[in-house]
Simulated scan of single mutants.
Amino acid sequence: MENLSQLQVAVVTGAGRGIGAAIAHRLGKDGFHVIVADVDRATAGNVAAEIKEAGGSAESVCLDVADKAEVQDWAQEVAERLGRLDVVVNNAMWIRYGPLVEMTEEDIDRMLGVGLKGVIWMIQAAAPLMAARGSGCIVNVSSPAAVRATRDAGIYAAVKGAVSSLTWQMSSELGRQGIRVNAVVPGAVPTEGARALVDEEGYELRRAKTPLGRLGAPDDLASAVSFLASNDASFINGHLLTVDGGLTVS
């Protein structure tokens, strides 16, 4: 078994599939001990096993980021067992699209719980561990919907707008403790989960509007997160890195 005390530790939420899984795999290749966190225990375990099979270091955890107590208990266990947490990638999101006037309170609460409160709870749990070492990196996942109207995405846009604002605010507050806080802003990435919400016609429209003429891939986002988590980005703080092929400005 590898000596985990010699490795930097990264956690990726919502990492059981799609973009989160790609980020977890990339950080494993980058030499981090990766904690693959997902509300689905089976998919998280599969991704962790794949990282280890590829020669990396990983473990999985079934974690509902919307549950503050659950997140705090997990962070305490990590502190006691690993003694550090160097990178947090807040990727987890729960989505329901629809006209605002038709959105149920249950759906709104879950979107806010996972997409916004989950980010807050993870930051609250991770920041003390990072501050104790005088360094750390938090990467949030926002969306172009935060800055441009998107059909039937009112609550999703509100959540991601809050995530962008929180990124800027925390970069100032936590930067003084040596903790960098940035975000990536994905364009259209047709993952398995996303395809359940957007049909082929919708993706063709997004492809047509993207200046680079293609849709994004999970690895595009993984590369961006890898950069923000690296020493090459050591003076980058409070930045929203758009990874969308130019879709936002088209």
Rank of each mutant, 00 (worst) to 15 (best):
R96A: 10
V71R: 06
I51N: 07
W74H: 05
I95Y: 12
V88C: 11
K52T: 15
L116F: 15
N90R: 13
L116S: 02
V119Y: 11
I123P: 00
M111K: 02
E77W: 01
E80L: 13
E80M: 07
D86W: 02
V78Y: 04
G113V: 00
D107G: 06
V114L: 09
D64C: 08
G56L: 14
G83D: 13
D73A: 15
L63K: 09
K52E: 15
L112N: 07
V65Q: 06
K117H: 14
V114N: 06
G98R: 09
W94F: 15
G56Y: 13
E59T: 12
L82R: 15
G56C: 13
Y97V: 04
R96L: 11
N90T: 03
L82N: 05
E102R: 05
I123N: 07
V78T: 14
A125S: 07
L82S: 04
N46K: 12
A75R: 05
R84A: 12
A125N: 01
N46D: 13
D64L: 09
Q72A: 14
A75C: 07
G118K: 02
D64K: 13
D64I: 04
G45R: 08
S60I: 02
I120Q: 03
V71L: 12
V89G: 11
S57K: 04
M103S: 03
I108T: 10
L112D: 03
V47K: 00
G55D: 12
E50M: 08
N91E: 03
T104V: 09
A125H: 03
E80V: 12
G115R: 11
E77A: 13
A75D: 03
L112R: 09
A58Q: 02
A125M: 06
K68Y: 05
A49N: 11
A66T: 08
E53T: 15
E59H: 05
Q72H: 11
P99D: 12
E105I: 09
M111D: 04
L82W: 10
Q124N: 10
A66P: 07
K117P: 11
V78Q: 12
D86A: 03
Q72G: 02
